[in-house]
Design a protein around this nucleic acid. Structure first.
Length: 673
DNA sequence: CGTACTTTAAACAGGT
DNA sequence: CACCTGTTTAAAGTAC
């Protein structure tokens, strides 16, 4: 509801992108109608304003203020980190030594924007190869640590908050607090999830290796005391899939309340910034930073470990080469991952990853802030230690982090970050979600992985309208949809399409009409649209080597879940000529190497069809071409008739096409998440 | 530079 | 008449 209003304002956004959008803006290729092309960058986003916070705290602080202060500190740490990143990246020579110190040297505004403004290319130009590598590692290590600390802080604060409220609550009717607590718990869980997801991603990319138990380590100290255990599952499940297994188990893990009174202690606790990094020079002379082993990898990794080495294999994104020992690994690292196009490409992708994470973080932080701010303002909320405090507006959103303007309107539904998709969702999900058949329908796999992400994040999906429409249609059992149903699918699946309706709907219609692959079939009840797969495939031939385009597309739509894919893409782009030659790709390898959504993204690999041993198996049965049997009765009359953007409250129930079947096994479950 | 592909915008025709 | 569906045309960007 409230969200609606915001949507209007954006109308002209298509090109402008925003926050995240900027990513897609430049890279998007076809995607974004990016107005100014890449040029727009630097000047455009002057939004980032950063006010030194904390000044607010004068003399004595009430608990509430304290909280805020802490939170701000945490945020600042995070922000500082960002700054460091930015400055570190932009100051060529001395990344190592100056890392922390140089943060200030970059004008804030620049720093704030840089993550998005600094194009990979620029980076490349600015940095020398070894620097790039070293930097990357360093930053990753840094980021991991800082993220962890940041989360920890946030969680502690949340805990404190909860405790506070709980106390207060004792004097109040329980229900009064119920909601708030729930909200907090939700936020809390979200944080956990986010953190876990980050770690997972990082881990997956070989950036860090840690034991599951450790991963959740920091979380376990979490304040759950105030939480009614029984609430949680529901919280997360929400109206989600009833049958959904315990994909949420993760979150519950943190429930043991060893947390106790992190309250006051948390304040004194944290050693935060500038973790002691141990530098160390590799044989090739490249300075390498070893992560200060906090909690993560210590296990299986010997002291002389390398961030990119673990479990006896190279953790370089997409590599996994086995190395018996560190020495061998280093050798491998220097030979295989020396500075070349491929490495830099991967580096670029990693940058995007980082940026994306930051954005995500910013969003969540902002939300949290808002929540806390809101609660603080409640006069009815008697503070155990002191009187209610009103938080100054300036104070409440100290984070200068560049968050997409839209974030305010972001749906409140728990956002399950994308990366999670592949990782944790898998565990819980039915067997049908096999990655193996992903390559059959790339877009779907992409979507599957990032479903949640696109659903909640206001990011333009890196797919063309045509491919999206096709996807929508293919997702249904009948492989046919009315226009309205297609609309609904768009809004349901992508937060991005919940606004600018006139624009994209027009585009959808346009595409339907324009592309031969979309066939309109008259039906009793009107007309439905189907996909003529052959036609669809036909129009791919325009060979796009897929490489660069692909990468860009991937990046533009970058989302955690795709990271791996992105890497692969980057890989393909720069130095796997053989991969680029369709001939070389057998489906098998293709699937494992390029699990991305090249569906529209250039379809480099797309084996093609002629009958496709590999291609859409699912499609084979029904003649997707002309004789689609038109469903007599669109069934979800109620749903598709609904004009309003179905957003906020996930009311998926209506939506869910029984998908199962054989087709895109991905959507089904999530539909309701 | 030309071509292909996308996206966005908009006009217009039929239907409801 | 307003709105929805579809169809077309045109312009502009991007990638190859």
């Amino acid at each position: 509801m409230m969200v609606e209003s915001a949507s209007e304002t954006i109308r002209s956004a298509p090109s402008g992108q925003n926050g995240v959008g900027s990513l897609s803006g430049q890279a998007d290729g076809g995607g974004g109608g990016s107005s100014g092309g890449g040029a727009a960058g630097p000047a455009a986003g002057g939004a980032g304003r950063d006010s030194a916070v904390g000044a607010d705290s004068n003399g004595e602080m009430s608990p509430a203020e304290l909280l805020h202060f802490q939170q701000q500190q945490a945020l600042q740490v995070a922000r500082q980190f960002l700054l460091q990143q930015a400055s570190g990246l932009s100051s060529p020579g001395n990344n190592d030594s100056k890392q922390s110190a140089s943060a200030v040297q970059v004008p804030v505004s620049v720093a704030m924007m840089s993550p998005q403004m600094l194009t990979p290319q620029q980076m490349q130009q600015i940095l020398s190869p070894p620097q790039l590598q070293a930097l990357l590692q360093q930053q990753q290590a840094l980021m991991i640590q800082q993220l962890q600390e940041y989360y920890k802080k946030q969680q502690e604060q949340l805990h404190l908050q909860l405790l506070t409220q709980q106390q207060a609550g004792k004097q109040q009717p329980k229900e009064a607090l119920g909601n708030k607590q729930l909200a907090f718990q939700q936020q809390l869980l979200q944080m956990q999830q986010l953190q876990q997801q980050h770690l997972l991603n990082l881990q997956r990319q070989g950036l860090v290796s840690l034991q599951p138990s450790q991963a959740s380590g920091p979380l376990q100290t979490l304040p759950q005391a105030a939480v009614c255990p029984t609430d949680l599952p529901q919280l997360w499940k929400g109206e989600g899939a009833p049958g959904q297994p315990a994909e949420d188990s993760v979150k519950q893990e943190g429930l043991d309340l060893t947390g106790t009174a992190t309250t006051a202690t948390s304040f004194a606790a944290p050693p935060k910034v500038s973790p002691p990094l141990s530098h160390h020079t590799l044989p090739n002379g490249q300075p390498t930073v070893l992560t200060p082993r906090r909690d993560s990898s210590s296990h299986e990794e010997t002291p002389g470990s390398h961030p990119l080495y673990g479990h006896g294999e190279c953790k370089w994104p997409g590599c996994e080469t086995l190395c018996e020992d560190l020495g061998q690994f280093i050798k491998h690292l220097n030979t295989e991952h020396a500075l070349d196009d491929r490495s830099t490409a991967q580096c670029r992708v990693q940058m995007q990853v980082v940026q994306q994470l930051e954005i995500q973080l910013a969003k969540e932080s902002e939300r949290l802030q808002a929540m806390m701010t809101h609660l603080h303002m409640r006069p009815s909320e008697p503070k155990p230690f002191s009187q209610p405090v009103t938080v100054s507006a300036a104070d409440s959103f100290p984070d200068g982090l560049a968050h997409p303007p839209t974030s305010a309107a972001a749906p409140v539904t728990p956002l399950r970050p994308p990366g999670l998709g592949s990782a944790s969702l898998h565990s819980g999900g039915p067997a049908r979600r096999r990655s193996s058949d992903k390559f059959c329908s790339p877009i779907s796999s992409e979507l599957a992985q990032n479903h949640e992400f696109y659903k909640n994040a206001d990011v333009r999906p890196p797919f063309t309208y045509a491919s999206l429409i096709r996807q929508a249609i293919l997702e249904t059992p009948d492989r046919q949809l009315t226009l309205n149903e297609i609309y609904n699918w768009f809004t349901r699946m992508f937060a991005y399409f919940r606004r600018n309706t006139a624009t994209w709907k027009n585009a959808v219609r346009h595409n339907l009409s324009l592309h031969k692959c979309f066939v309109r079939v008259e039906n009793v009840k009107g007309a439905v649209w189907t996909v003529d797969e052959r036609e669809y495939q036909k129009r791919r031939p325009p060979k796009m080597t897929g490489s660069p385009t692909l990468v860009k597309n991937m990046i533009s739509g970058l989302s955690y879940g795709t990271l791996n894919a992105s890497y692969q893409a980057a890989l393909a782009e720069s130095s796997f000529p053989l991969l680029n030659s369709p001939g070389m790709l057998n489906p098998g390898s293709a699937s494992s190497l390029l699990p991305l959504g090249h569906d529209d993204a250039g379809a480099p690999v797309e084996p093609l069809p002629s009958n496709g041993s590999s291609s859409p198996p699912r499609l084979s049965p029904p003649q997707y071409s002309h004789q689609v049997q038109v469903k007599e009765e669109p069934a979800e009359a109620e749903e598709d008739r609904r004009p309003g953007p179905p957003m906020g409250p996930p009311n998926p129930s209506t939506a869910g096409p029984p998908e199962d079947r054989d087709l895109e096994e991905e959507l089904p479950g999530e539909e309701l998440s």
